[in-house]
Amino acid sequence: MKRLIALAALMVCALMVSTASAKDWSKVRIGVEGAYPPFSYVTPAGELAGFDIDIAKALGEAMGAEVTLVAQDWDGIIPALLAKKYDAIVASMSITEERKQKVAFTNKYYQTPAKFVCKKGTIAEFSRDAIKGKKVGVQRATIHDRYLTDNYGNDVEIKRYGTQDEAYLDLTAGRVDLLLADSVALSDGFLKKPEGADYQFIGPDLSDPKWFGDGAGIAIRKEDTDLVEKFNMAIDKIRSDGTYKTIQDKYFDFNVYGE
């Protein structure tokens, strides 16, 4: 019996040691969203696909790490990173000051502006007065949510959704009059599809860094500074060796990286 207890104690010690030292990043778990086409979505076959997914895999390869993808709903995506459900987030997350207080970011891996979308013919010209009193849909916990709340919170009725897909459903059902989201997500995930045929962009490109940050980066726990470095080097590598462009051309016909 005593030997058994001693053995068990030894095993517990061994386990603790192995978790403490397993930070050579030969295996990296990456949190992704899976409901944000064309950046991240689930194919009819049930597999994760999209720009973010391909970038995540390419970065893993460039780092020489084995990547495991973990799908996670957006509004829990930072808490789950902090709770160590995965080690990095590759989910079109904009680099903003608020988020920097909780997590560390790599350099950006793409940057696109935000835009409003409405049904064709419902709003002639975009202005604060033109959208006053309208219902505007937005994905909860996004930079777009924050921008809308801070700038139009008193003028419009804000409807917050867990995923962008739910917001599209309610726009086509007529439950909201406008959506605010990333322009590329809106154009490729909605406007170019049959259900988006009656809808159009309205208003200016929005990219004020105060709300929209410095592009989309990879979020990593603050203590893992070595992983941030590894990802930054991996981003530079896929940018220079043409992998980035190959992935970009698969999804877009323009430069998604920005300036």
């Binding site: 829990g76 808490p79 988020r99 207080q101 909780k102 909860r140 949510d145 917050r160």
Partner: peptide, 10 residues
Amino acid sequence: RIINSRYYSP
């Protein structure tokens, strides 16, 4: 959920 998403303080 609104407070959580705004301040990341679940």
